[in-house]
Simulated assay, not measured.
Amino acid sequence: MYNKAETSRIRSEFWIAFGQYMKPIPNSEGRRINWPNYKTGVRHIYFRMKAENDFASIGIELGHADEELQELYFDQFAQFRGMLESIVGEKWDWNLLVQNEFGQPVSRIEKILPNVNVMNTDDWPAIISFLKPRIIALDEFWENVKPGFES
Rank of each mutant, 00 (worst) to 15 (best):
K111C: 04
A78N: 12
G103W: 04
V145M: 02
Q104R: 08
L96C: 10
M1C: 06
N144F: 14
Y46R: 15
P105G: 14
E143W: 09
K132L: 09
R32D: 11
F80Y: 15
H44G: 00
E143G: 09
N34A: 07
P26D: 07
N115Y: 11
L113R: 02
I87R: 02
N53H: 15
E67P: 06
N34W: 07
H44I: 03
K91Q: 10
D75C: 11
V42A: 01
N117E: 04
W92F: 09
L113K: 00
E101L: 10
G19P: 13
L84E: 09
S8E: 13
F130D: 07
W124Q: 06
L84P: 06
S107M: 07
P105R: 12
I112V: 14
F14D: 00
R48E: 00
I33S: 14
L62C: 03
G59I: 05
D54W: 14
F130K: 00
M49F: 02
P26A: 12
F130C: 04
R11G: 06
F102D: 15
T40Y: 05
N100A: 00
V88F: 05
F55R: 03
E150V: 04
R32W: 07
D75A: 15
G41D: 01
R48A: 02
A5P: 03
I136W: 01
G89E: 01
F18H: 03
E6D: 08
E85D: 09
K4E: 04
P105Y: 07
F55G: 11
N120C: 13
D66I: 06
P147W: 00
P105E: 14
